[in-house]
């Protein structure tokens, strides 16, 4: 016998210092703030919480993007496309959504698309679209 059990719980996760700064800049200024690693000076975007190379913490804010280069992408039925992009000025890569790019090519130039309604987190970027095409 199979019984279905449903669970509904509203979770909310603290973003932490660097990610809060990142969220506030997106929300208020449509700017993308990476962070300089306190250990090795790499520019992290997403900003943290810790550097993948040296484990250092996200430090001073560094503006990156909104231009970016496509490193990898994947498309899922009914779920859209996702991309790994390197924002201009960043050393790490950001995983996000790929929007309105009919023929993605690794190495192509992309640009962040900001959401019209912004709440202060990563979703304030709707995704990355082809460079030069503003909605």
């Amino acid at each position: 016998m199979i019984v279905e059990g449903r669970v509904q719980i509203p979770f909310r996760y603290a973003a932490g210092a660097a990610a809060s700064r990142f969220g506030a800049a997106l929300r208020d200024e449509r700017r993308i703030l990476g962070a300089r690693c306190t250990g090795c000076d790499r520019v992290l975007c997403p900003p943290g919480p810790f550097c993948g190379s040296c484990g250092g913490a996200a430090g001073a804010a560094v503006e990156v993007g909104p231009g970016a280069t496509l490193l990898a992408w994947t498309e899922l039925p009914d779920r859209g496309a996702f991309a790994l992009v390197r924002l201009d000025g960043a050393d790490g890569a950001l995983a996000h959504r790929l929007v309105d790019v009919p023929e993605p090519r690794v190495g192509m130039r992309l640009r962040a698309r900001f959401a019209p309604e912004r709440g202060g987190d990563i979703r304030d970027i709707e995704g990355f679209g082809a460079e030069g095409i503003e909605r």
């Binding site: 996760y13 603290a14 932490g16 800049a25």
Partner: peptide, 10 residues
């Protein structure tokens, strides 16, 4: 910045 959070309703 003020401490922000991300809502993830389950």
């Amino acid at each position: 910045a003020e401490p922000l959070g991300v809502a993830c309703p389950m």
